[in-house]
């Protein structure tokens, strides 16, 4: 990463943990997972709680839907690490990589349900333009999305508008397809805590 403290500034016990994970999983811990170990009282501890709640807490959206929202927001932000990580995770969650790829290539024509399409469109506008209006929300609600689902989607959007920025500012290394797939398996098994 672009700050030396984020590469080498961890406590000895944390460095040992990183080494053990690398040994037993065959993959280095991705930078997104390393970052939350740096001075966790400042950022990581609460960031993990919020992200886990948004991505794995109770919601009418499936885990796959929320991972797709994460991948979509990351695509709008052009955040390469997060696009790779959450494309892999959504693809595994749905067991349908082509559907995820279709959404990221062209939301309007992708084979997904209208409530999810309308929600992704709104999250994209909010992320891209920094604002949405009541009219945008009425369109989402008219597509059959409940107010609670809108709130849940906004939490996912908030979480990834943080993570995308940190990934790009700190320069998270791109692990490659195998590394992303391994990370996705971990996120589906354990979540973000």
């Amino acid at each position: 990463m672009r700050l030396d403290i984020l590469d080498r500034g961890y406590r000895p016990g944390t460095k040992l943990l990183f080494a053990l994970i690398r040994l037993f999983s065959g993959h280095p811990l991705p930078d997104a997972a390393r970052l939350v170990f740096y001075r966790p009282d400042f950022y990581g501890a609460r960031a993990k709680e919020f992200t886990h709640e948004a991505m794995r807490g109770p919601s009418a959206w499936s885990v796959g839907d929320r991972e797709l929202m994460a991948a979509y927001v990351s695509t709008v932000n052009d955040s390469a690490f997060c696009v790779g990580a959450h494309t892999a995770t959504a693809s595994q969650a749905y067991q349908d990589g082509p559907r995820v790829a279709a959404v990221l290539a062209d939301l309007a024509s992708a084979p997904i349900a209208e409530p999810l399409r309308a929600t992704l469109r709104m999250l994209g506008r909010l992320t891209r333009e920094g604002r949405v209006g009541a009219e945008d929300m009425r369109e989402v609600l008219a597509a059959g999305v409940t107010p609670q689902q809108v709130q849940d989607a906004l939490a996912v959007c908030a979480a990834f508008n943080i993570t995308n920025r940190l990934a790009d500012a700190f320069g998270f290394a791109l692990p490659g397809p195998e590394g992303f797939a391994a990370g996705a398996r971990h996120l589906l098994k354990r979540g973000y805590r």
Binding site: L126, V132, M137, R138, L141, V150, L154, R165, L166, A169
Partner: peptide, 23 residues
């Protein structure tokens, strides 16, 4: 950097919730 990222995200979150409340 963390504060800038969290700040931007917070404005988006609040804008979305406010638009929903209005709708």
């Amino acid at each position: 950097v963390v504060c800038a990222a969290v700040g931007r995200s917070t404005r988006l979150y609040e804008a979305g919730l406010a638009a929903l409340a209005e709708a």
